[in-house]
């Protein structure tokens, strides 16, 4: 394993929305010395495509996402967003963090508004921004809670604010770093459906990092499996063939689903 698998659905002439090529990343530890977290990782994502990156814990999934987001820079290789090389965080890449990362002194709506005006030069008027924030909070069913502060919201509501904030930015690419990982099973289940609906309504490019095989299968067009670290690589690139709009019950009872699921689980538990 460990060889890069090129995607097979690239149209000639049209550049991929996101291209990660030959990226490596390591960290210096005081005691253990230099740890190469990511080996050479390459893949690309087409415009409008929803891909998931799954891997065993400690495989460097979140590091990979941070590299894409520009929050970390790769030791080698590069990340390209259509025509532009990513060297620093950009509003073209929206991030939904693992923890909700809402500013606790602002209400839900103020958190979304802050994201809309933080870079200073907004082409929208204050009123437009306000209705945009309300619109997105409405789409995640938080209209009634928009004036509450994060401390007054449940974990699931907090994460929905985070999602609304990322969508409201209208970034070309949305990076989701285990957004539902910290939630209880019931809430996670409901939010997965909400995310599915949003991603099918919105024509965006999505990169989701998760450790949940069912979540990846439900949401993605493609699933990349990272090998066990250190020097993690992409060991598998699976196409998820289910038709959209998807219906959870229908998918989960299909033969393909069970086959893909088994394949992914085997791949995840395989010894490096």
């Amino acid at each position: 394993m460990g060889t890069t698998i090129e995607t097979d659905a690239q149209l000639p002439g049209k550049p991929p929305a996101l291209e990660i090529s030959k990226v490596t990343k390591g960290f210096a530890h005081r005691r253990r010395g230099f740890q190469q977290v990511l080996g050479e990782v390459s893949f690309s994502v087409d415009e409008g495509e929803f891909i998931s990156i799954i891997g065993p814990s400690g495989s460097g999934k979140s590091t990979l996402l941070k590299l894409i987001a520009g929050l970390e820079s790769p030791d080698q290789g590069h990340v390209r967003l259509t025509d532009e090389q990513i060297a620093a965080p950009s509003r073209r890449l929206g991030v939904v963090f693992q923890q909700h990362v809402l500013l606790p002194w602002l209400t839900a709506k103020q958190n979304v508004l802050f994201a809309l005006q933080a870079h200073g030069a907004s082409r929208r008027s204050a009123a437009e921004r306000e209705s945009l924030a309300e619109h997105w909070l409405g789409l995640v069913q938080l209209s009634e809670a928009q004036d509450l502060k994060p401390g007054e919201l449940s974990g699931g509501m907090q994460q929905r604010v985070g999602i609304a904030r990322a969508f409201a930015l209208e970034s070309e690419v949305l990076l989701l770093d285990e957004p539902l990982g910290a939630l209880d099973a019931l809430t996670r289940h409901a939010l997965q459906l909400q995310l599915l609906r949003l991603s099918e309504q919105q024509r965006r490019t999505f990169v989701l990092v998760t450790h949940d095989v069912d979540e990846a299968l439900l949401l993605s067009d493609r699933i990349l499996v990272l090998s066990h670290g250190p020097q993690a690589r992409i060991q598998q690139d699976l196409r998820v063939p289910f038709r959209r709009p998807r219906d959870r019950t229908a998918i989960e009872s299909s033969e393909d689903y069970l086959t893909l699921r088994r394949e992914l689980l085997e791949s995840l538990t395989a010894q490096p």
Binding site: Q99, V101, W105
Partner: peptide, 27 residues
């Protein structure tokens, strides 16, 4: 200060004034 707040500010391309006055100082 939670370093994720500063990561957030970076991904939002917050201006220095916004980063310092709206994120760092309150946090």
């Amino acid at each position: 200060v939670n370093p994720l707040y500063l990561d957030l500010a970076r991904t939002l391309e917050a201006t220095t004034a916004n980063r310092v006055l709206r994120v760092l100082l309150p946090a």
